[in-house]
Amino acid sequence: MRLPLMALLAKGPAHGYELKTALEKLFGAAYPQPNIGQIYVTLARLEKSGLIRGEDVTQSGRPNKRIYELTDAGREAVAAWFDEPSSEPRVRDEFFMKLALAPATGMADQVSLINKQRRHYLNLMRAMSRLAAGEDRDDTIAQLLIEGATLHLQADLDWLERCQEELE
């Protein structure tokens, strides 16, 4: 969550709760909501590494709140983040290990493994459809995130089919 929080701060200073609200607004229910504790911990770490700077603001009748802003080093880190292509496409390593090792162990059948995995993906896909239906259709960012998840699942299912064709 480090870089998204820093990227939100690139727009201007904010306190922890504002950042949480901004994340929620951007992603809707498609994103697992960060809890506020997680955000405060991350902000404290970022401050310690000199990527952001915090300043307490006194509030009458309420505890102080800490407003954070990006440091130059932080801004550079965000720029580098945008500059780099993002990490490799996801591969189902663990499932593939099971599939590869099943025959040697004699403890699992490849076709049952594939069937079980397919069932899991289809149920996830169903959850995605429900999620998409529940999100505001005009919330483009949330809809695109769900669309991405859906396409990944479709690819995983296609790949399962390939495994089945080759192994049966």
Partner: peptide, 17 residues
């Protein structure tokens, strides 16, 4: 339809900072 689905899209696409 769950009000707060445990499996969000981000889990599937591994969206993380």
């Amino acid at each position: 339809y769950p009000s707060r689905p445990s499996r969000a899209a981000a889990d599937v696409v591994k969206l993380q900072g």
